[in-house]
């Protein structure tokens, strides 16, 4: 079932939301915002997307695996960039001296913070969407026989 209004709104709002989310995500180290907020916004756009298409459309449906990859990938980026510090003989999650630090105020300016923020953003977006998905369709069978 298609809802004209929702679909039209979605066409306008989803890219805008995602762009806004991306902005917050990428400027996490420059202005208020960051992985959690940006990720949530992007996740919300996914949710909106599935609401628009009501899960009916196989073509437009986001797969469970996708959100799983988002989640896992984000977490791996975080832990991985933490481990880089140890590989360089410093401490876990060390930033200074391991990652190149650009000029203050520029987008590429604080070493791995951006990387970590991106990881967190992916993780949060994936998680938010996955929560939504699971709550709608997931859950064990009623009496636990499997």
């Amino acid at each position: 079932m298609h809802d004209m209004i929702l679909e039209m709104l979605g066409r306008i709002l989803i890219p805008a939301t995602q762009l806004f989310g991306a902005y917050i995500l990428f400027h996490g180290h420059l202005s208020p915002g960051g992985g959690f907020s940006g990720g949530t916004i992007i996740g919300a756009s996914f949710i909106f997307y599935s609401l628009v298409y009501r899960f009916s459309d196989k073509k437009h449906r986001l797969k469970h695996e996708t959100s799983l990859w988002f989640e896992v990938g984000g977490a791996l980026i975080y832990v991985g960039s933490g481990l880089v510090g140890i590989l360089f003989g410093r401490h876990f999650l060390t930033n200074q001296g391991v990652f190149p630090i650009g000029e203050p105020g520029r987008l590429w300016s604080s070493g791995m913070i951006l990387l970590v923020t991106l990881g967190i953003g992916a993780k949060v977006a994936g998680t938010v969407f996955k929560l939504f998905q699971e709550l709608l369709e997931g859950g064990a069978e009623p009496d636990g026989h499997h």
């Binding site: 929560l131 699971e134 859950g139 064990a140 009623p142 636990g144």
Partner: peptide, 13 residues
């Protein structure tokens, strides 16, 4: 979220 999931399960059962 987890609590809600549990509530869904409880309601099912």
């Amino acid at each position: 979220a987890f609590a809600l999931a549990l509530v869904v399960l409880l309601h099912k059962q």
